[in-house]
Nucleic acid binder design. Structure first.
Lengths: 197, 197
DNA sequence: GCGTATTTTCAAAATGTTTTGAAAATTCTT
DNA sequence: AAGAATTTTCAAAACATTTTGAAAATACGC
């Protein structure tokens, strides 16, 4: 409570600077989301919950972002699946209320964890499988010039593929470190890097 | 030279394991690209050049990926704008030849540099502008209860917005460090992190 | 269990993005 | 400078993704 959120039906553009700033933030965050492969609406709903700072129900979210009920419902479901939005329990409330953490580092780690799990790890697995296709089990016998050429061709290929797999494995390890809730994460990293330069 | 690339008109699926592995790599890289906001074809062209390891001309790329001339042309242009593909100069060649670096760290830094420049920096700027909307220049006079409430509302808002700006500034600084061609970049970071844990 | 409030689902529509293909522009050769 | 080869451009088409809205499902209070 404490202040008034723009309500459904209140279509006039606000003149309240906070309201304006919120809208701008939401738009910016939505755009940034889509340039990193996150649906604009999903990023916007998250931005709204973040910047408003208190739990909102579906109707308020719909009204504020001018999206349909279906879209709001699916988006909120996805945000929950990603672990960055949760239902708030507020006694006496009929409708579900949603919140997001106000700790950005936590949000960041959550997103990183999800993307690692869904995208990086399966990619590395698939690349390792791919690598096996050219992992000559049989001893190279090199009877003909042609097969010698072919072998070195395969070797070059393997070198490049291995380099890529190593790189991703490295990124993966780094992500793992950032995900750990233990350390201060990037804050530490920053210190390290700024010393190093 | 040295080996044969599958040519235009050669539509039969290869049985050569290297060829198969290349195709799989290309498909995987394309998929990963699109989940990170990079057009699939763009990622695929890059993957092709990377995994084949030698310069290719537009026709070969078109044939291998089964894409149109227009698509190939635009994609190659974009990849060049991003700085991860360049024209190779090979004497005696009529057609333009394209290559990508075989150094993945270099590629990574290039992509990071571009995305920082195009997405992160402008976002931070825009957020700073946004922040000014609620930066009360006038001294708070607090004559009425209502305006007191309003102020604290704005203060809370500013806190959240500042936290976001600080976070992004931090990420930006980290990116800057990784971009520097000087250090070993992530390799060092990795060492640091694995010790830290 | 019934009626009401709320949430979810999903086929169809809207929107946004990528690709095509052929014409225009450019570059190269003689 | 003409002609041939190559590359670029861009409007239209194809494709992919997101959004809608209304029906179905679920949860809630009595």
């Amino acid at each position: 409570m404490g202040y008034r959120i723009r309500m459904a039906g209140d279509a006039s553009p606000s003149t309240d600077p906070v309201q304006l700033a919120q809208d701008r933030f939401i738009a910016l965050w939505g755009r940034m989301g889509s340039s990193w492969g996150i649906p604009r609406t999903m990023a916007q709903v998250h931005a709204l919950l973040y910047i408003v700072g208190e739990p909102m129900n579906t109707d308020d979210i719909m009204a504020r972002l001018r999206i349909s009920r279906g879209s709001a419902s699916m988006t909120l479901k996805n945000l929950q699946d990603w672990g960055i939005v949760s239902r708030a329990v507020v006694p006496g409330e009929r409708k579900d209320l949603f919140t997001t953490s106000s700790d950005i580092w936590k949000l960041f780690r959550t997103v990183l964890r999800e993307r690692k799990k869904r995208e990086i790890d399966p990619l590395i697995d698939a690349l390792r499988n791919c690598r096996e296709l050219t992992d000559s089990h049989q001893k190279p016998r090199r009877l003909f010039a042609a097969s010698r050429t072919r072998d070195s061709h395969a070797e070059e290929h393997n070198k490049r593929l291995d380099a890529m797999i190593d790189f991703l494995t490295m990124i993966d390890a780094l992500a793992q470190q950032l995900i750990q809730p233990s350390g201060k994460g990037l804050a530490l990293a920053a210190k390290f890097f700024s010393r190093a330069s």
